[in-house]
Amino acid sequence: MSLLFKNRERSSGANQRKLSFIQKIRSFFISHLRQWLSSLGSIWRDPMPSILTIAVLGVSLTLPATLYVVVKNAESVEQNWQSAAEISLFLQDELNQQQLSTFIKQVELNHKVDKVRLISKDDALAEFEQESGFGDALNLLDSNPLPNVLVVAPLPEFSSASAAKDLLTELEQMREVDFGKLDIEWLRRLNALLSMVNTALSSLVILLCISVVLIVGNTIRLSIANRKEEIEVLKLVGATDSFIQRPFLYTGLWYGFFAGMLAWFSIEILLLFLASSIEKLTELYHSNFSLAGLSIGEMFILLGISMLLGWLGSFIVVRQQIKQIEPELG
């Protein structure tokens, strides 16, 4: 493209300055590819500053990603606990056998209830005798002081803290029930705790992402300052600002890519360390919990986010910085 010499393209016969549309598209992609690779090459040639930057970025990204893995696992554990929510209904003492079985039927038919289990007062006493070691003392009592207890397990969709609470109030209304008990306080506390951790995590993630952007921006700013002479030469021979900017934008993208890879490796290594100790812990709790790392999809999301952040950090400084550099003669 010639601005001042419109007829130059045609006049200088053999020169073929004018490129066809297809050639332009092709040269656009070739030029991008070239700069994409050359930005990788320039990282390779002078690796020290890049390695340091990438290490800092990698650590910055590892932290939120690790926290994410922790929350993810905590949530899956919490889900297991959620479904363990059970309601204990302590029944009126004066119910006869007939009334009792009708009541049990009635509760069983409730659409929110999965299954029920009756712990009769005699069973409860026997169990208490066995477990507590008060057997002889209990023999002194003239009647069984324990009530019949009906343990109600709600369907999974009604086993969350609030839904189970609703079910409890509903069941408590029934004549046969003395009072009901749902030990959900701890569940609610856990819920609140997890949502607090989630909020704290999101603000932490935002802060760390900002720091990634700033770190990349600062590194790119320095590397632009280092290559001031080269940029001047490029400007003198007619390079547009966007042509000069591109390698720096690609460098930011590469930083993000390597930092994301580093973060991913760090998490995998961290999990490897944790896995064996967690296995011991879960064995003690007779739980079938297994530690989940980042899935392939999440790994790509991590890479995508880190590349985006790298690019963004570069983008923020590159325009301003390159605009400022003007060539000098002599």
Binding site: L3, K235, G238
Partner: peptide
């Protein structure tokens, strides 16, 4: 923005 295109028509030696 047009300056680069002008410079392409001027060969400069320093």
């Amino acid at each position: 923005r047009q300056i680069p295109y002008v410079r392409r028509d001027i060969g400069m030696i320093f």
